[in-house]
């Protein structure tokens, strides 16, 4: 029967081994895969500015991006492709409260520059290789 010290070895050994594998895989992903899959060459100052605005307003508090965030408002990973620049800019720049399909969005009333930065960020997001996410609706006629 298992003794307490064997159980301790199982815990410490198992943790150590899996943690080392985890670090190795993480290193590989971050150094080799991320630059290619996210097209880091396109990560311009404007995209970074857009990310700042994205975070400053907690857009993830309603929307998801890369499937992460809240489930109150649409997934925005492919929004650039789906709606195009003009639509997104109107949504961000409007000063009058609006409610697409009855659900209110904060009227941010952004400047043209800020809205363009967010668009650049969303365009860059849309080009990341996400292993096929979001899926194409396979039952759509």
């Amino acid at each position: 029967m298992l003794s307490k010290s064997q159980a301790k070895v199982f815990f410490l050994g198992g943790t150590m081994v899996t943690f080392v594998i985890f670090l190795g895989l993480s290193w590989n992903s971050l150094s080799k895969e991320v630059p290619k899959r996210t097209h880091e060459e396109n990560l311009t100052a404007q995209v970074v500015a857009g990310k700042h605005i994205w975070e400053k307003n907690n857009c993830m508090g309603c929307h998801t991006i890369l499937g992460e965030g809240a489930y109150y408002a649409p997934e925005l990973t492919k929004v650039y492709e789906r709606r195009g620049e003009a639509y997104i800019k109107v949504a961000l720049m409007t000063k009058t409260p609006w409610q697409p399909r009855g659900r209110q969005m904060v009227a941010y009333g952004m400047s043209d520059k800020d809205a363009s930065d967010v668009v650049a960020f969303l365009k860059w997001i849309g080009e990341i290789d996400l292993n096929g996410f979001p899926p194409k609706p396979d039952l759509k006629k």
């Binding site: 199982f10 943790t15 943690f19 985890f22 590989n28 992903s29 895969e33 899959r37 890369l66 996400l130």
Partner: peptide, 21 residues
Amino acid sequence: GLTFISGILGTGHHYYYIGVG
């Protein structure tokens, strides 16, 4: 022990569709 052995590498389920391999 079981928690860490499964949980550490289980972090992978958050990495499926965020831009890593």
